[in-house]
Amino acid sequence: MSESSSVRPDAAPHVSPFHRAKGEPRFPGGPAPDPAGSHHERRIRSFQPRRSRVTTGQAEALERLWPQWGLDIDGRRVLDLDELFGGRGLPVVLEIGFGMGEATARMAAEDPGTGILAVDVHTPGQGNLLGLAERAGLTNVRVANGDAIILLREMLPPASLAGLRVYFPDPWPKKRHHKRRLIQPEFLDLVAPRLAPGAIVHCATDWEPYAEQMLEVLTAHPDFENTVPDGGYVSRPAFRPLTRFEGQGLDKGHVVQDLLFRRR
């Protein structure tokens, strides 16, 4: 056995997250199951938690990397984003909902001068993005676990963000569920003060009725202006990778719309 792979006799045994004792956390030192707990009021959530199996590689990434690159959205403190990203003075973009993190990792690799604070509640995706970041040697990605609304409302200082990305959010297609859609006037009221002047809001969806709503509410909001002079959508910017999910939708004939709005 090589020296690098040897285990000290007194080392604590590794406990698999798939075989833990009753009551033990799923990932000790990793993302909390309900980081904000009961100290913030309950509300209609704009996301639907997904339960799926965490692979061994994702679990190991969560256990090793979460203390360094992970953040629970507990709503109990205001973040110093410069400190969070190592004091390098990076502009920080907030990405809400990153799936398995492939597109996020690619954007981070192609733009190392921008910090990406990526928020999701999908544990396998959190572990996958952490693993991708480590393998690519990325230092400009941080993964946040929990409700992005609490992050924006309680934990981000005014004018602290250089941008916001919301790619393929849940469209909540049933009319009775439209109130759960993320891009609403009230959400923009919350976002606007956290964005620095000139910051870009970039949304993308393959659900046309939702694209129309996004365009309507962003156009109507006084704090944002469309980067398209005559209004409307933009072609997919080169910096947003074509995702596997998006490719599957295009194969089915879905129309993907991108919106780019600037904070006034």
Rank of each mutant, 00 (worst) to 15 (best):
D74R: 10
L94M: 02
L84Q: 05
L71Y: 06
D72A: 08
G70D: 06
R50F: 01
Q58K: 12
G86Q: 04
G87K: 02
D74W: 10
E60W: 12
G75H: 02
D72Y: 07
T56H: 15
A59Q: 08
G99S: 06
S52D: 15
W66C: 10
E110H: 09
E63C: 14
R45S: 12
V92A: 04
R77F: 02
V78I: 06
A108D: 11
G75R: 02
L79V: 01
T104G: 00
D80A: 02
R64W: 07
A61D: 14
E102T: 09
E102R: 11
R77M: 02
G101M: 04
R53H: 11
G87H: 04
G70N: 07
I44S: 08
L62I: 15
L65S: 10
L79S: 04
D72G: 07
F47P: 03
R43D: 00
T104F: 00
G113S: 10
Q68M: 06
G101T: 02
R45W: 13
T56A: 15
E60R: 15
V54W: 10
R64G: 12
A109Y: 03
A59N: 12
R88V: 07
E83A: 09
P49V: 13
G57Q: 15
D74P: 06
Q48H: 13
D72M: 13
Q58N: 12
R45L: 14
R64E: 15
R51L: 15
F47R: 01
P91E: 04
L84F: 06
G113E: 12
G75Y: 01
G101N: 01
D82L: 02
D74H: 09
M107T: 06
A109F: 04
R88L: 09
I44N: 05
P49H: 09
V92L: 07
Q48P: 00
Q58V: 09
I73R: 04
I73S: 02
A59P: 13
L84R: 06
F98W: 11
M100H: 08
L79T: 02
Q48S: 14
D72L: 13
Q48T: 14
S46P: 00
P67T: 14
R77V: 01
G101W: 02
S52I: 12
L90R: 06
T55K: 14
E63H: 12
F98N: 06
L84K: 05
G70H: 08
Q68S: 11
R53F: 01
Q58C: 11
I96N: 08
